[in-house]
Design a protein around this nucleic acid. Structure first.
Lengths: 241, 241
DNA sequence: ATCGATTTGTCCGTATGTATT
DNA sequence: AAATACATACGGACAAATCGA
């Protein structure tokens, strides 16, 4: 029941109360909490006041609503995954070394004229063509990062014939005798696009880390540009010097 | 005026309408938009419906409210500042090289028993004492990052006598003949604490990059641990290999 | 497959509190 | 002190989605 004297807004009190019950394990992950009407009666406040509290808890990711069904406790934040950024760019190896299970899903693979950013990053000519591959990468079955990989077509003839049965992107690239290494990365915190949020299975208000990588081959040829979007709740990127 | 037939919620229509007027330059950055009552009358909808639209626009950072004053257009995202992470950890130098003006403000400087994370990171003994310095760092006068720096007291005798007139933290540390270098950094995207949001002058719903750094001296002694919180809208962290 | 009950989503109206000018 | 503007809270109504009888 809300305290009507202490000057704290009712909806704030209700937020705390609900959150405490979740932390105490009274409401468990994925479980439905009482309906707005029930809570309204139980706490002797208007339904809108309950809604205001639930709104805030949804906003910060504690609850989620399903129209016509009810309101549910969001999944507890998962253990974060430390992902080492280094000159090597091998997702599969990197995750396996951490004792977790990596997997991939190729969303889209198209050939296109290099977009300006890619052209500039890889020092390509005016109308050079690149392969653009969208890969969603999972750790222990959970979506972890979404990568848009750009590879100059001239260095990877017949790439699409081989892509269907590729296990790891690294192995595919290796087939061309190329061993890429990171030369520069830039990182920003932001929010996912709608597409990214969907693929990563996160709400659009969860922050992500967007990383822009430029890679060179062993012969110092600019060989790959990729944009990676890491889930903010899962990814801890580490750099060792 | 809202379209009452097309099935799109009024508050969504109002959001678009307001956002368009901002993009068209009709409402400019920092400028007050009409009051809720005015918009309620102008659009022939209830004040709560207007509020709902404004709520969402505040949430995504387009507007901000000041109780008793009004609702205002948020500042356009500033040009991002590329900040190079390297073994060197010199904020002042780093920013000056990029042709911008750095400045510092020491918030708090206290001596304390090392918190567990710091103790573990710096391999300190049970009750060892550390100096904890909170520094807010500005670029061109805008808050850019908030650092909590932890230095083992044993290596920095009499630090507080010198701190009052320090220009850059690097120079202060240099006075002890120490030249720290980064050995490991881990990065995460998240939201600022209330204190961080206040210091960095950002809303609490703007993402930040939190970086944990461990530094060693030239003699390979673990010499500094710091937690830095970068503004997500300003910071582009880059790493070169 | 349909209908009715349930539950969240949207919208309106009103009143009062609190901070600013 | 009064007016203004956002903040909180109450009330009612209907729409839209879900689910089970």
């Amino acid at each position: 029941m809300v305290d009507r004297e202490n000057g704290i807004p009712y909806y704030r009190q209700l937020m705390s109360s609900i959150q405490q019950q979740i932390e105490a394990g009274f409401y468990k992950e994925g479980q439905q909490i009482p309906t707005e009407m029930e809570m309204s009666r139980a706490n002797q406040v208007n339904r809108h006041t309950i809604r205001q509290a639930i709104d805030e808890l949804c906003r910060i990711g504690v609850l989620y609503r399903l129209k016509g069904k009810g309101t549910f406790v969001a999944k507890a934040p998962l253990d974060s995954i430390e992902y080492q950024l280094s000159t090597k760019n091998r997702f599969t190896e990197n995750i396996m070394q951490a004792g977790k299970v990596p997997s991939n899903k190729v969303f889209r693979a198209v050939e296109m004229i290099a977009p300006t950013v890619v052209k500039e990053a890889l020092a390509l000519g005016a109308d050079e063509s690149v392969y653009c591959i969208h890969v969603l990468r999972f750790v222990n079955g959970k979506p972890f990062l979404l990568s848009q990989v750009f590879l100059p077509a001239k260095y990877f003839p017949g790439l699409f014939d081989r892509i269907s049965d590729f296990q790891t992107l690294s192995l595919l690239i290796e087939q061309y005798g190329i061993n890429p290494r990171r030369v520069k990365s830039t990182l920003r915190a932001s929010f996912p696009s709608q597409e990214e949020a969907l693929a990563l299975e996160i709400p659009s208000n969860m922050p992500v880390i967007k990383v822009e990588n430029v890679l060179k081959s062993q012969d110092d040829i600019l060989i790959e540009y990729n944009l990676s979007c890491y889930r903010g709740d899962l990814a801890k990127l580490s750099i060792a010097w």
